[in-house]
Amino acid sequence: MPALTSLPNLAEIQSLEEALHRPETRRSREAVEALLAEGFVEFGASGNVYDRATIIDLLAQESGGDDGDLRTSNYALIPISNDAVLLTYETERSYRNGSKRRVLRSSVWKHDGLKWQMFFHQGTIRT
Rank of each mutant, 00 (worst) to 15 (best):
L70E: 11
S73K: 11
E42G: 09
S94N: 03
P23R: 14
L104P: 00
E62I: 11
R26S: 01
E62S: 10
S94Y: 01
N82L: 01
S15P: 02
R105F: 08
E24R: 10
R27F: 00
T88V: 13
I55C: 14
S94K: 01
K110R: 12
F40N: 02
E17V: 10
A31G: 08
A76C: 05
I56H: 01
I55M: 15
R101E: 04
N48T: 03
R105I: 04
K110I: 11
R52I: 07
D112G: 00
R52G: 07
L36T: 06
T25V: 15
D57S: 14
E30G: 03
E38I: 14
G44I: 09
T88Q: 12
A53C: 01
T25G: 05
L35I: 04
S15V: 00
T91A: 07
G98V: 03
A11N: 09
E17T: 02
N97L: 10
T54F: 15
D69K: 05
R27G: 03
L58H: 04
Y89T: 02
S28M: 09
Q61I: 01
L35R: 03
L35Y: 02
N48K: 07
R52P: 01
S107I: 03
R102F: 08
D51T: 12
N74I: 00
S99H: 09
E24Q: 12
P79E: 06
Y50F: 14
A37I: 13
E30K: 04
L16D: 13
F43A: 07
T88H: 04
D83M: 07
G44D: 02
G113T: 05
T25E: 12
V85W: 04
A76Y: 00
N74L: 04
E42C: 08
F43K: 00
R71M: 05
E17S: 05
E33D: 14
K100S: 02
E90C: 04
A34P: 02
T88A: 09
T54H: 14
R52T: 05
G68A: 05
K110P: 11
D69L: 06
R105S: 02
G65S: 13
Q61W: 09
S94A: 07
T54P: 00
T54M: 09
N97G: 05
A45I: 11
T88K: 11
Y89V: 06
S99F: 06
L77W: 14
E92C: 06
A19V: 01
L59F: 15
S107G: 06
G47A: 07
H111M: 01
A60S: 12
E17L: 15
Q61M: 10
N97A: 06
L87N: 06
Y50A: 02
A53H: 06
S99C: 09
K110E: 13
E92G: 01
L58N: 10
A60M: 04
P23I: 14
I78H: 14
Y95W: 10
W109K: 09
S46W: 02
E38L: 15
R102V: 05
S73C: 09
E30D: 13
A31R: 11
G47P: 12
G113A: 12
R22V: 03
G113Y: 07
F40P: 10
P79K: 00
S46G: 04
G98Q: 08
S63K: 13
S28Q: 07
L58S: 07
K100H: 04
I56G: 00
E30Y: 07
V85E: 12
E12H: 02
P23S: 10
L77Q: 13
D83L: 06
R93D: 00
A60E: 14
A60C: 05
R71W: 12
